[in-house]
Structure formats: C-alpha cells, structure tokens
C-alpha cells in the first residue's frame, strides 16, 4: 500500500517536471471553441465603454468589440465584456483572460514591444489636456507654474504631465489617486487647481460629473501629448492580429464608401462598384469574390457583418463620442482633413 503510494508520487513528480509552459493556441480557434469573444473594456468611461442601467455596454470601444465578434463568430452579440482597470488591462491580455483589448489604450513603442502586445489600429486620436475652474483665471497651460494637479494613477498621464512641465521649466505638485471617482471628488472639492487626463475624458467629465453642468469649469487649449487609442492583441498570432486590424479598417472604409448599417445588406446584393463588392465579398458578374475573407481565415461576408454590427466609423462616432461635445477634428476621414485612413481592402 505504502509502496504503491510512493510509486504514484514518483510518477506525479515526473509529470510535473516535464510539463512546460502552457502552449497558447491560435486565438481564432479558441474564440470559436468558446463561442464568445472576451473583450477587455474600460470599467466605465462615457463615450468609450460604459454599461447602462440594463447592463448593455455602449461606446466606441464596445462597438469595436461587437464588430470583431461579428467577423470572428458571425454574431455581434457574442461578446463577453470584461471591465478592466488601467493596471489590470495588459496583464489580462498577456494571460489570455481576454482575446482583445479595446479599452482606450495608448499605442506606445514600449507597450508594443516589451509588453508582448500588438496594437492593430487607431480608433481614436486623443491627447492629454487640462481642466481648471473658471475662477482661477487661467487661459493657458503655460500659466500653471506651481499648480497642484490631480491625476489618476495607472496611466501615461503622470508621465506626460511631468514631461510637459519639465520641458517648460515649470514646477507642479501632483496628487495621484487610484480611483477616478476619488480623483474627481478631490478636484471638485478644491484640493487641486487642475485636473488632467485625455481630452475625451475631460469632455466626458465636464458633461457628466462636473457640478452645475460644468458651467464653472473649462478645458485649456493646449494638448500636451499624442494619445492614439486603439485595440491591442497578444504578439505571436498573426492571423488574429489581421482579423482585428481589418475588422476596424472595414468600418473606416465603409464610411468612405458610404456604406452604413442601414444600407449594407442592400449594397451587398445590388452594388456594382467593384471596390464595394470587394469589401463586402459580393461575387462579381462572373461569380468571383475578392477572396478577402479567405485571406483572413473567415468567410466572405465578414465585412457585411462588421458594418451591420454597429454601423460604419462615423455612425459609431456620432452615436458615442459626439454627445460628449467632441467634434470629429483629426478623427475625421483623411479625405475630410482628418487622420482616419484605411489601406485598400483588396
């Protein structure tokens, strides 16, 4: 009895000793097997990803999740939204807790390399700004020497802030708080002169959180950093990277080609424009399709589903970001003076 126990122990040891790192299989297969896309989003940022009273997630980042699920699984509703804090987000992606991160995350060199991630596209060009009470009588960030500045931890905001003040030979005192609710509480109570975060966040705060409807506060004109926000995936699965990348580009191209949530299905049947046919996987007069779906490892109607899920980029923007009071600006299409540009989808 005792001896057989000992033999089992040795056998168990041999197994433990030989097991090596878990093999990360192709993400698409894993997503299909689970029949749900695990998408990392912000715990609550108006315009980007926020759950409403019925638990439905809305926002630009949430809609990107839906478009990807529509492409990968054929159903925009097969998304499991995983709300993540700034500190948790990259670890969650690295560990495979989520399949894609769509959580207003800034694309930077070190994140793209040292964190083992790949950023696929930019879905929103943001930049860090400052909010001050109007009674402070400040018109420019250059006048903020000596100010006390409230900032939330776990973002690149702290770094940009210090860089900006160093570059302009100014001093400041940071008050770095973990939870956004507490940061805003301290700022609106008057603990700080200035609140800093991305401009989109400032717009959302001014509209949703500021007392008196934001009438006593203003956003300074300076934009002190470049914050290209977009989805990220794990390095090393090129097929999955491509699926996420072109799901987003399809939305941008759809805006350019005038394809909307309402007309996409009609156009898929009736359009004679070769570019539209190519994007939507419609067979041409000779019954040939563009082969985009095959190249990505999905079926040919992928782009139809992506656009059907939440509309093209401008529909998504107008529904989520515009109500914050942020005009398209540099987020307009390249043809309208902005930076949104899709490579040819052929």
């Amino acid at each position: 009895m005792f001896r057989s126990g000992a033999i089992w122990a040795v056998a168990a040891l041999a197994v433990v000793g030989s097991v090596s790192a878990a093999y990360a299989g192709p993400t698409l297969d894993a997503v299909k097997k689970a029949d749900v896309l695990k998408c990392g989003v912000n715990t609550g940022l108006g315009g980007f990803s926020i759950a409403d009273s019925t638990g439905k997630w809305t926002g630009l980042d949430a809609d990107v999740c839906r478009a990807i699920a529509a492409v990968a699984l054929g159903d925009a509703n097969k998304v499991k939204f995983v709300p993540l804090s700034a500190q948790q987000r990259f670890t969650a992606l690295q560990n495979g807790e989520i399949d894609v991160l769509s959580r207003n995350s800034t694309w930077t060199l070190q994140r793209d390399t040292k964190l083992g991630l790949n950023f696929t596209n930019v879905t929103f060009y943001d930049g860090q700004g400052f909010m001050v009470p109007k009674k402070l009588n400040v018109k420019s960030a250059k006048e903020l020497n000596g100010a006390t500045i409230c900032v939330q931890t776990g973002t690149t905001t702290e770094l940009n802030l210090a860089d900006y003040f160093r570059a302009n030979s100014m001093q400041f005192k940071p008050v770095v708080i973990e939870q956004q609710q507490e940061v805003l509480g301290a700022f609106f109570a008057g603990r700080c002169d200035v609140y800093t975060t991305d401009r989109s966040g400032l717009a959302s705060t001014l509209k949703n959180d500021a007392p008196n409807g934001g009438a006593d506060y203003m956003v300074l004109p300076e934009i002190i950093s470049k914050e290209p926000l977009g989805p990220a995936v794990r390095q090393g699965d090129e097929q999955w990277t491509d699926i996420v990348k072109y799901s987003v580009y399809a939305l941008i191209q759809a805006e350019e080609s005038g394809i909307t949530q309402a007309n996409v299905e009609d156009l898929a049947k009736t359009s004679k424009d070769p570019a539209v046919q190519g994007l939507l996987g419609t067979p041409n007069a000779e019954g040939k399709t563009s082969g985009n779906g095959e190249a990505l490892g999905v079926d040919e109607a992928w782009a139809v589903r992506a656009i059907k899920a939440a509309g093209n980029y401008s529909e998504i923007y107008d529904r989520n970001i515009k109500p914050l009071g942020l005009e398209r600006g540099i987020n307009a299409l390249w043809s309208q003076g902005g930076l949104m540009y899709s490579p040819p989808l052929r």
């Binding site: 070190q110 931890t153 776990g154 702290e158 770095v176 708080i177």
Partner: peptide, 23 residues
Amino acid sequence: SVAVGYPDLVSISNTTLNQTGQA
C-alpha cells in the same frame, strides 16, 4: 494610501508597474 493619493510604496510601485509593464 493610494486611495487618497499619499505616495507610499504601493502607489509608486503601481505607477512604475504601469509605465514599465513589469508586473
């Protein structure tokens, strides 16, 4: 401390962790 912004070890490490990603 990080809950109210006192820069203790955990608060500073969180910032460091976030900037370097070396959890």
